[in-house]
Design a protein around this nucleic acid. Structure first.
Length: 311
DNA sequence: ACCCAGGCATTGG
DNA sequence: CCAATGCATGGG
């Protein structure tokens, strides 16, 4: 099986990072983490490559394997894509310095040392996943996201696993309203996602262009799209572009966790959270957000399968 | 049977 | 310009 090694930066915890990417549940959308191997179906042009990623036996990096027939060029592509998905290119040193100055945050995320800010494959994936997650609980969002990926994603049988590449803008743009509604999306969200697919196809939403914009410029441009508000734009910047200083201050769960950790449970407003984050965590508000959410996700997943998993 | 959940667009003051 | 309202669905 063709494979390529990639060296990893420090600090880096592969298990933590792959678990975070799959919401500590082994599968989340197009991402799968099972038996110590992270699987992801990647799009390269019109083809799909399935990467299987595991720690090198030497422990000095990662091995990325593709199916037989993959070229050296495919391997180089996959190595680069996996490095992005796992956030290996992020710089954590400044954030860890911030942690030493914030004992509350440091204690909360103490067991997340080496977690990397993982990413989606592209802007479209992040936007669609964010729209799905608007207003509803993580549990509901997961059901809808996984259904969408299994229904409209590109199946890729490889490494003995049935995997799916994330649906293309083309497929979702071609899908009828009733087909999207069947994904348990609301009428509105079905329209939003359809529109985002169209705008991605016609270049109105363009990864390279957005990557060249400052955080706030990108938000201002994205919120012109129907269905994309500030919250959705900010999550896209974090998830797709790995922006380290973006914080979705309107996020209900983030408000709650910051309230509990820093304000004795008292309700805080969006602007209070924005001020707090700017003063306390700049310029690493995005990394603080990622770590806090990883903490929440893991707690929730453990509570469901943990103490009284009476099976 | 309610009520809430990692928002958004629309409407009405 | 700010406040209220409907939306779809699964879990508590």
């Amino acid at each position: 099986m063709p494979a390529i090694s990639i060296t990893t930066p420090k600090p880096f915890d592969f298990d933590l990072t792959a678990s975070h990417q799959t919401h500590y549940r082994g599968i989340a959308g197009a991402d799968v983490y099972e038996g110590g191997v992270y699987y992801r179906a990647l799009r390269r042009g019109s083809r799909v490559l399935v990467a299987a990623v595991s720690e090198s036996s030497g422990g000095r990096g990662l091995d990325v394997s593709l199916e037989d027939g993959a070229s050296d060029s495919d391997l180089a592509y996959a190595a680069q894509a996996v490095a992005g998905l796992l956030g290996l290119d992020a710089d954590l040193s400044g954030f860890y310095d911030t942690l030493t100055a914030d004992p509350v945050l440091a204690r909360t995320v103490a067991s997340l040392h080496g977690l990397r800010p993982t990413r989606t494959e592209n802007v479209f994936e992040a936007l669609v996943v964010a729209v799905i997650g608007q207003q509803i609980s993580g549990a509901v969002a997961r059901v809808i996201r996984d259904l969408l990926v299994r229904t409209f994603g590109t199946p890729a049988e490889a490494h003995g696993h049935a995997l799916f590449a994330f649906p293309t803008p083309h497929v979702l743009a071609e899908a009828g309203h009733d087909e999207l509604r069947a994904m348990k999306l609301s009428n509105r969200k079905a329209e939003y996602i359809h529109g985002i697919a169209i705008k991605t196809l016609d270049g109105t939403i363009n990864d390279g262009h957005l990557a060249g914009l400052e955080d706030e410029e990108a938000v201002e441009e994205l919120v012109k799209c129907r269905g994309i508000g500030r919250w959705t734009a900010e999550w896209m910047l974090i998830r797709a572009l790995g922006r380290p200083d973006v914080m979705p201050a309107g996020d209900l769960a983030l408000k709650r966790v910051v309230s509990q950790l820093y304000f004795d449970g008292a309700d805080i407003t969006e602007s209070q959270l924005a001020d707090f984050g700017r003063e306390r965590w700049s310029p690493y508000r995005g990394l603080a957000t990622t770590y806090l959410f990883s903490h929440l996700r893991r707690e929730r997943a453990q509570n469901e399968t943990g103490p009284d998993a009476a099976v």
